[in-house]
């Protein structure tokens, strides 16, 4: 298929978590035990969309699995603050 033209899709789906204000407001990261002062100061959140933290990270547990953003987007991993944005 590499040299062939793809058939035109009628519709496609955004495979990444959308970096929207609505998702940021619902994000559980600020309530997570791994979320520390450095992350608060950096106004970080929504790691599953924006990517991993700039702070030195110490894993103290993960609440991604209980976050509405993760569940609505069909995520199934933990510690996006460490591993980077969700790929699916």
């Amino acid at each position: 298929m590499t040299n062939e033209r793809r058939p035109c899709p009628a519709e496609t789906k955004e495979a990444r978590v959308r970096d929207t204000e609505e998702n940021a407001k619902r994000c559980f990261c600020p309530g997570c035990p791994t979320f520390d002062e450095c992350m608060i100061e950096g106004r970080e959140r929504l790691y599953c969309a924006r990517g991993s933290t700039r702070c030195r990270l110490v894993r103290l547990g993960c609440v991604c699995g209980e976050c509405d953003v993760a569940i609505e987007n069909g995520l199934s991993s933990n510690y996006y603050c460490d591993g980077g944005p969700a790929k699916f």
């Binding site: 993960c62 699995g65 209980e66 069909g74």
Partner: peptide, 11 residues
């Protein structure tokens, strides 16, 4: 399945 994920989840 993955730890601490609420239902529904695909794993």
């Amino acid at each position: 399945g993955p730890a601490r994920y609420r239902s529904p989840v695909r794993k």
